[in-house]
Nucleic acid binder design. Structure first.
Lengths: 341, 341
DNA sequence: GTTCGTTCTGGGAGCGCTCTCAGAGGGTGG
DNA sequence: CCACCCTCTGAGAGCGCTCCCAGAACGAAC
């Protein structure tokens, strides 16, 4: 129980004085106690407890040039990115890993280009050791802004090809996962396998499309339809597909939400799943997968783990450990078989 | 365009040297320029731009004892509190207002009592000037932990009666809003007005129940049913109500999500809304209200504004402006008439 | 021309910490 | 018993900034 419950917070000086050692020794104990004799360590530790000493963060940062904080940059274009379950999981992973590294999460919410200046100033001002950002749209100017601050950064999701070459990122194996999904449909004996893709300004959507094409090299363009990752767009894309190609017998959908929409359309039209049309999604998003009927076969990715990996990568960057330019991480995906395919 | 694009960041000293003034004068300019002759101000400003000088946050904090950061404490009991649209709006309001005050948002994610120690240490360590927290469950030990750090804090939502007396909070007028909703149903000529309440360990649920009772002082207990703020629980509660009191002709539901569930049950049973049973919700949550059929009459509260108010209150606390003990804010609600009542 | 007042500027201390470097202390071997 | 080495500790500088206070500069009033 700290005895000094009021007044100014005790300093390291106070701790040292109480024990009768120098500030340097007290500092050593507070920072792990290496090179200090055990009995002294014990005495200092006790003094710390008794006084309720907590290191002054600003003073420490001033000399170490490290402040134990990482910015998470959340750009909100038109959507409610924050309440997206995908995001929630990723941020949870980030938060947990950051805690494990004794680092703090500073949330930087970017609402538009008007905020870029503020963000640049903040990142450049040394408030944080590094930053985590997410690649959302290929035409976003934000990556360039972040890059200019020369602060270490790790992206969630592969950035657009145009951006600076050595930006480390963490992404799941979108292309490989897509391949596996499509191959599964091929193995099922399906002949006319369609694809509902996501917006073409997002690398994840593009990569999944590429995966589809890897397997079905000369797929007919009429088997392709585009959505925008929303449920409604999936329903619409499925309807178009059905109109254009009534002989379609399978569809690989670029995410679960659109797959859910596609399933709705199929049911409406009296098409049986998986008997008439097999459906495979992507993401394995619990909230969606659970409530579709039939339950959705989909490509699983461990989103929380991707968040953790982002932090690990950043920490390695900050430590100076790890390769330069830093390597990115592609996490594996796995096909989860349920009833829809 | 800063000319020093590499190497160590320029210090105030460098700026001063470039202009040929003292560090003190340069500091004055950087902090507003009061008491410095205009031409000198101009020269220093230019030097700041040319060198790309950004004040060192740690050094500034060390002497001012203010660090321009506020913790937002998010406790996650069993639910996905993060992806709750309610939360998103509130945090958005907080973020915007914080930005307006040039303050940063540090996210503290509490996953359980095991984190309390860490949180207490962080808050007590002077990393942040103040904190914002949300009152979730009355039995939560977190408020006590926060209180013990003696850090200024403002709550979102009225804390449980048991907690320390002078905790400032921002909450909407749950009770008044409920009264208005129920009065509307009375004015519609409804006789058997039921209430589906929320969990009784949350003050918002309790307050709304009180509002209902304020108007219907001797309402029959059989007209009361309890849910847990989820859609499913609303559906279930409505079913119970219908079984118990087939003569029910109106229901005030403690939140929109449960109201949506209730509407589902009513439709299933072939009960017409609003002809047979009028329904009023609470929250005016865009994502819910939009998709119910019929569209939901509900009590509106400005959640984003509540977030902003939390920050304003905290800032006043930090400035030493404002009353002591600090006053809480109850924001007004308004009934939004749509088709369900 | 002297004195007083007002406005501006600079010197310097100090915020609380880390870290280098030198030296104290104590053990070991010859 | 002395020289030497290794381990542990303390003195002190310095991180970049703010702010107090003394003093410079200049004008106005006598």
């Amino acid at each position: 129980m700290p005895e000094q419950t009021t007044g100014p917070r005790p300093t390291l000086e106070a701790v040292a004085a109480r024990v009768g050692v120098s500030r340097a020794t007290a500092s050593r104990v507070v920072n792990g106690g290496a090179g200090v004799r055990p009995p002294l360590v014990e005495k200092v530790r006790r003094a710390v407890d008794e006084l309720g000493y907590v290191p002054n963060h600003a003073a420490r940062t001033l000399v170490t040039r490290r402040n134990g904080a990482v910015a998470v940059i959340i750009a909100e274009p038109e959507f409610r990115i924050f309440s997206d379950p995908f995001f929630e999981q990723q941020v949870r992973g980030i938060s947990r890993e950051l805690t494990a590294h004794d680092a703090q999460l500073v949330l930087l919410w970017v609402e538009g280009p008007g905020d870029h200046d503020r963000i640049a100033r903040y990142l450049g001002g040394g408030h944080v050791d590094g930053a985590l950002a997410f690649s959302l749209h290929n035409d976003d100017a934000l990556p360039a802004v972040i890059d200019r601050t020369r602060i270490p950064v790790v992206y969630g999701g592969r950035p657009a090809p145009g951006t600076s070459p050595a930006v480390p990122f963490v992404d799941c194996d979108n292309r490989g996962g897509a391949r596996e999904a499509v191959r599964h449909l091929v193995d099922l004996g399906r002949r006319n396998i369609a694809h509902i893709s996501g917006p073409d300004d997002q690398t994840s959507a593009l990569d999944r499309l590429h995966g589809y094409r890897d397997v079905l090299v000369d797929a007919d363009p009429t088997l392709l339809s585009r959505g925008d990752f929303t449920e409604e767009s999936g329903a619409r894309a499925m309807a178009e597909l059905l109109d254009r190609r009534p002989d379609v017998d399978a569809v690989f959908v670029a995410n679960d939400l659109m797959a859910s929409g596609a399933l709705l359309t199929l049911r409406e039209r009296g098409v049986r799943v998986p008997e008439d049309v097999a459906v495979v999604g992507f993401d394995d998003m619990a909230s969606v997968v659970r409530r579709t009927s039939p339950s959705l076969t989909t490509v699983h990715q461990d989103i929380e783990d991707m968040g953790r990996l982002m932090v690990k990568l950043l920490m390695r960057l900050l430590d100076g450990t790890g390769p330069v330019p830093p390597a990115s991480v592609i996490t594996p995906t796995s096909l989860v078989l349920r009833d829809s395919a």
